[in-house]
Computed example of a mutant assay.
Amino acid sequence: MLDNYVTASTSRVKSDKNVPRGKFEELKKTAKKKLSSKAFHSKANLNGVTIEFNGNSHHQYEFWKMNWFEGMKPSVDGRIFSAFGVEGVEPSAYYCPDTNESVFFNTEYYGQCKSWALGMAAAVLERDFNTHSIHGACAQVEGKGVIIVAPTGTGKTTQAFKLMELPGGRVVGDDWVYINHDEGENQGYLVGRQPEKSLYMRTETQKDKPWLRNTFDESKCENIVVNKKECEFTDGEYGCKMTGNTCVFNDGNRWCYYAFGNSRALVRREDLLGADKIADDARVDLLVLLRRDATSPAAVRLDADKAVEVLKKGEFMVRPGAGPKDMWGKLGSEPWYNPYLLRLDNARQEQFFRDMISKFGVKCLLLNTGVESIESTHKRILKALASS
């Protein structure tokens, strides 16, 4: 039986990431009042930074415990207060830079909670440890590592998994990479690490990788469509617009993993293809930026200036589930393709990426998945890795 939880808000809620301390204390007071009667608490270790969860949603708490390694330090570097069922308050999220704390109201959707935890840890790591936080996938093949940075829906997870499936391939993570530049100075090269015990995966990846269905069937899921009437992609009585084939419900399945663009599964990394197909870190030899449009060249080699120009602009098409519903299908902008940086320092981000390419010699490619097949993009990445 599918282990699936449907949240009241199925995507990110409206937010304010720069709340003054005085106003934030009032918001926190409201949240803590609701949490005083019932709350779950858990500390997470995100690359040495401890973020504490306090909330009354068992779903969020359960995903939090499975997602992260346990934080063992007595002190904490940031706190999240997530209060569900607060009357008279619309679903919303607030962050206070002064205290490195967040408050969520009336949303059990785990994705935003997870991403803000990463952003809170990133603020500490950047400030205190000269560590660059990148929203991207990381994999290695025969000891050579690649970081794939892209807006949602352009194929970074797909490409990372194709690399993992190779005989000498392993995946580090599919969403977030930490790079300590002080360590890089000492070693002469950069190393990418990821903080997650389990991967919070878009289940639509199962469309291109059928073997993931069994994996997702054994995982805890969020917002999976279990009724054909709720599917966004039906084509007539029997068809599917996503695949061009027969609807999975008509094939006798009781749920569909790609009927909603933001359905998720929380999968232990070792449950993907086995413990020997995962790695905790990878030397960074290649940086791949992905875009998806019908007119740009298939591949462009970028120097540091051009890479920074693309990353700083951060243009992308907003996909369902990747932002407010009124923005779905419209052109958006997320500098550095990282909406999770709660304390955005553009100058620091620029320097991190410049150093990666210029100082540490990481090759950078911009690939367009809108004009080539998945396999063609995969071959370009392999060729670039081989020559790195």
Rank of each mutant, 00 (worst) to 15 (best):
D271T: 05
G173W: 07
E204Y: 11
A294H: 12
W328P: 02
P97C: 06
L302C: 05
G261V: 11
K144A: 03
I381H: 08
H59C: 10
A139S: 15
P151L: 07
D276I: 02
K34C: 05
V310E: 00
P339A: 07
S333P: 12
E270V: 11
F104K: 01
D217A: 09
Y110G: 01
G321K: 14
G78V: 10
F352Q: 04
D305V: 11
A8V: 08
E90I: 13
D285S: 13
V300L: 14
Q194C: 09
L190P: 09
V284S: 03
N56M: 13
G188T: 11
V225Y: 09
T154C: 09
E87A: 13
K325N: 06
L290S: 04
E334M: 13
K32H: 08
D280I: 08
C256Y: 00
L365W: 07
G88K: 10
A117D: 03
T152W: 11
S387W: 00
F260I: 09
A279T: 12
D235A: 14
E62H: 12
D16S: 07
V371T: 07
A279V: 02
R254A: 13
L382R: 05
P320K: 14
E372N: 12
R254N: 08
E237F: 00
G244K: 09
E237I: 15
F316P: 02
P74E: 15
A298V: 10
V308L: 00
L385W: 01
S358I: 09
E70W: 04
